[in-house]
Design a protein around this nucleic acid. Structure first.
Lengths: 241, 241
DNA sequence: CGTTAATTTGAGACCATTCAATTTCGGTGG
DNA sequence: CCACCGAAATTGAATGGTCTCAAATTAACG
């Protein structure tokens, strides 16, 4: 799973949505970028900021969040390697939310102009980018359903199912075990629960023999069971194999 | 606010995001379409369906929803005239959720192929479409926050603020009064509450002198108060005047 | 003007929260 | 290597917001 070129994984992913010509691929791979490392909870994009470069996640995890006036927060999505965390900012201009690294993250920062130029000259690449943002949107929709209509157990199970499938897709984890550096507070902020109740809910999922969750590592013991509890249907991920 | 051409409103809206040449506008206005009327709760797009045409809402309201296994539902967004209700389906292929008319709706149905062709030939139009779907996504994100982290009163106030601003933008409503054919059950399904609790919450908003809501008509009595209660910040709507 | 949908009201139960205290874990410096 | 520290996880008990279930009232529509 180690790519010679950091953008190699993107080529692989996008090839599934659109037919990329040799020329398209070449243009993509010759995009300029700089590597950048982020520590725990470091800001990758800050709300209100004007975007000048676009961040492709290479290693680690990232999440997007919005803060409320009363200080509470809602995590809006998680991002795993090979994903752009802020593609929409390249177009909308001002970021309407923040992106932070989770634990640690390594990114390829691509100048916004270079990205829009390559999109202008390569319609297939623009299409792939668009599809990326559409899949993002589809995931947001499912999150609305998750926090809006499911109880705590289903919410957490559903979130775990989603992350597991996405991690699987990029070849992370083996034997049902995944690196999982999320704190229970982050899990809570992503599901609209409190940290305390998240703790109890996780205990319940463990007691049911569905998962094992310790020390930054998640093991799936009963995938079908977890899927059942989480009311999980992966259609919304649009992960056409 | 009556357009000679149904796509006129789209031209006006998109002109704010991207510079449209005379040629772009012409291409847009000469898109083929058929008018179609939908009755109360009629399906405009059905989950799992393959998209062959794209729906532009001309009159009335529409909403998107997802059904859960237990039969409950979550409304994911509302749509008002001049908006495309399923632009993403033109690209993603299979619809991952349904779109229904609310009360009544009049649409312009545009063949999917015609739309993608005009996008291929007119980069500015494609860009405008992309921005449309990005704003959609931004609204989904805010909805995640709304159902995830706000209490019932704030949730409903926030939703009302959003709809009011969007309706205002297309020139609907006068003197703070808007046509508002939503049932309390639909309001509930959009905010992740029950119909009963939505009823009580609305009463509370009325008692506070913020709104007047009767017989398919919403009147804003105290905009600043409603905004305050709803923790509303319109940045996410990306409605650059 | 009758019939159905939508709104409203009441009371009790329950899921999730709040607040506080305790335990465990991971990392750091002596 | 152990002692220490702060962060994270865990536990308990009480509170409260929202739900559930029913029934009553009102509005909408043909």
């Amino acid at each position: 799973m180690i790519d010679v070129h950091p953008l190699g994984a993107v080529v692989r992913r996008w090839s599934k949505h659109a037919k990329l010509s040799r020329d398209d691929v070449e243009a993509l791979l010759s995009l300029p970028f700089t590597r950048k490392n982020f520590g725990k909870d470091a800001y990758i994009v800050r709300e209100g900021q004007k975007a000048v470069e676009c961040c492709l996640l290479l290693r680690g995890l990232a999440f997007r969040q919005k803060l409320l006036r009363d200080g509470s927060r809602q995590i809006i999505s998680f991002h795993i390697p090979t994903e752009f965390v802020d593609l929409q900012n390249s177009l909308l201009g001002v970021a309407d939310h923040s992106v932070q690294s989770l634990y640690r993250a390594e990114c390829a920062m691509i100048p916004r102009d270079a990205l829009t130029n390559v999109a202008d000259e390569h319609p297939a690449l623009r299409m792939a980018m668009w599809v990326d943002t559409l899949i993002d949107a589809s995931i947001f929709r499912e999150w609305v359903v998750n926090v809006g209509r499911r109880d705590s157990k289903a919410r957490i199970a559903h979130l775990l199912c989603e992350l597991i499938l996405r991690l699987q897709k990029i070849g992370a984890g083996n034997g049902g075990q995944y690196d999982f550096p999320l704190t229970q507070e982050q899990l809570a902020d992503a599901t609209g629960l409190t940290a305390v109740h998240t703790n109890r809910t996780l205990q319940s999922l463990r007691k049911d023999g569905l998962i094992q969750l310790t020390a930054k590592s998640l093991t799936v013991l009963d995938w079908e069971g977890l899927r059942e509890v989480g009311d999980f249907d992966e259609l919304y991920l649009h992960q056409q194999i």
